[in-house]
Amino acid sequence: MIEIHDLHKYFGSLHVLKGIDLNVKKGEVLSVIGASGSGKSTLLYCINGLEPVQQGKVVVDGTDVHAKGTDINKLRQQLGMVFQQWNSFPHLTALENVALAPKIVKGKSKSEAREIAAQQLKHVGLGDKLDVYPSALSGGQQQRLAIARALAMEPEYMLFDEATSALDPELVGEVLETMRMLAEEGMTMICVTHEMGFARDVSDRVAFFHQGVMEEIGPPEQIFGNPQSEHTQKFLANVR
């Protein structure tokens, strides 16, 4: 379970997250929507400790992410993350991209790591691209590679930060399909997304962020069918 208590985040004097309280249970799929600059990415970075926080805390399976004694590199193995930009390691083949972290972070043997990698690449539909370099893959394939790379660490949670926003429109579908598959397999996911269809169909709950505040959270039927907050209504009217 991910527990977020009264989380505040500042960039200098800019107050980016203004007291977020949020719990995400095992197996849940949460979509996070909201205008640009509302703090959605920052929330994910605070959850896996890529950004420090100034007040409040994030607790993942009982471990305080930002506490001094926390082994953050160990904790991050529980929190797979996929970014808007896929960040494939260009000097490694698809298989090596995925096998690298299991090998050096988890200390798996080379053959074990390669086996895990091959399995995860098949899982995301890249079973025929094992020895291909990222430069020969499409954006959609590279993003699926990034998903496989995160899954190879066998995380309990997956964080997606607009995983499809940088893709050509015709490539969005294959990545959403992969995310949908993970959700069906029971993966716990927090998906920052601009894909309202995905948020509506796949999520258990949808959270709407507005200027650093979580304005509204609820099942998709509520957020999309009967939004309570005026900001949510305005936002949805604009994206539709």
Binding site: Q85, V105, A150
Partner: peptide, 13 residues
């Protein structure tokens, strides 16, 4: 920076 953040997010030190 995004490339390095991705590496760190995998648990690399």
């Amino acid at each position: 920076a995004p490339m390095r953040r991705a590496a760190r997010s995998l648990g690399m030190s």
